[in-house]
Design a protein around this nucleic acid. Sequence first.
DNA 1: TCTTGACCTTGACGCTACGTCAACATTTAG
DNA 2: CTAAATGTTGACGTAGCGTCAAGGTCAAGA
Lengths: 260, 260
Amino acid sequence: MDWSIQDIARIAGTTSRTLRHYDDIGLLKPSRTGHNGYRYYNQAALVQLQRILLLRGLGLGLPVISQVLDDEADATKALAGHLEWLKQEQDRLARQIASVTQTIEAVKGGGEIMAEDMFDGFDHTQYKDEVEERWGKDAYAKGDSWWRGMSADEKSAWKQRSRQLGADWITAATSGIAPDSAEAQAMAKRHVEWLTGIPGTPASDVAGEVNDGGKARLKAYVTGLGEMYVADARFAANYGGQDGAAFVRDALAFYAEQNL
Amino acid sequence: MDWSIQDIARIAGTTSRTLRHYDDIGLLKPSRTGHNGYRYYNQAALVQLQRILLLRGLGLGLPVISQVLDDEADATKALAGHLEWLKQEQDRLARQIASVTQTIEAVKGGGEIMAEDMFDGFDHTQYKDEVEERWGKDAYAKGDSWWRGMSADEKSAWKQRSRQLGADWITAATSGIAPDSAEAQAMAKRHVEWLTGIPGTPASDVAGEVNDGGKARLKAYVTGLGEMYVADARFAANYGGQDGAAFVRDALAFYAEQNL
DNA sequence: TCTTGACCTTGACGCTACGTCAACATTTAG
DNA sequence: CTAAATGTTGACGTAGCGTCAAGGTCAAGA
């Protein structure tokens, strides 16, 4: 007792094209082939097909499924590995949802997706409210006047330096080194020094102080900034996306913990 | 001031291949092209690139990004739509994780991914423990002896009937009709009648009774079974996967509510 | 000046899991 | 006997680039 290709397709809830595909890649061969080339499937093939569709429904890829069917012993292993991947995907999705949500808010408020001066320390036009709220009422005014006081060449040089810093971070993040490695910590040091060059932020304020209260504020500023890089997709974009930004955040956090 | 293709690739944290691709599909043209065909990008192009990478990092597709950049006014709309999609994906992932987890347990206990007699009412060999636990100590024994008592032809006919039912459910689920539609409810009726034909289950026990307690048990059995079809990927596979199984569950639930 | 090496160009294939024609042969129903 | 259903193989399309391949360009050192 066997069925034609359409028959099992209907029984199993799939299409004949899929069955031909599985035949092509050797995942499921028909149990019998007619003299005319027609594919026929028997009970055993149907069970195999059900298994395939079951595993596929769980999100496994066809090569993995093939391997699991060959050796059902490591089915548990394959499934466990897949489960890990699924959980990572879930985390990634959660972060993306948070990012999109926040970006919607930012775009609603700011108007543009990314301002031209984004990343140059912080945005001096789009981030007025946010800067005032997070770092104090006069922080924005200070930073703004400092920026406006620069000549075109100075601005250009500053931007160049900022971009270079970002590019180097990206290089570091994608090179596979750890956030607490010497190279990454050197980058963190450079980043903090760079921050210190921007008036109107806790970083620059602290530069002239020696008391501990100032150092505590700097530490909070640096770590907080790292979080913001990850949370705000517009900043994250400057570090090669969320993954790169996460690397920067981790490196900064470790640096702050050790040195500030 | 402009940069070569490698320069911005490094600054923005992407690759030159990606930039060529964006040029090919018209998403981001170089601001200038040398007599030798070299691509050069300026500040404005860099900002555009950052926007693109930002949106890409949020999970948007390139065509959508292109559209958003053309008209930033509906960026909010596009992002909101994308957010919906992301949430659906999150739900799907959550269901998959639950399914995989449960399948791992089942495989650990049962040994095989899907038994040959799966779907023939319930599995008479792999589901001993589960059947006993869920439907009573003697349910398994009853069902098993009933099954063993059948001749080969009878078994074959029964399997055929079971498969036909599953195939028809799949057809109904994929045809776009509602679970509470007349056609789906007719299927639900047929399903319950089919269940009644399996000894050792609450469904068959009730067939001979007239009291209300029996009807309540049948109702609980039918709705519970529907949930199990969705929760257990091995059953779900018989109804075309989780989506199909969900359709069956909904149809059964509605039928039980109205008629039992 | 010649060479070396780094960087640039335009194709074009590969990847996932099939959907979707196309062109043609065969089986089945009326 | 014909029309409709169903079967076959072959090949392109999909998303977003990675990855050769084969060959021009450019800056710097011997």
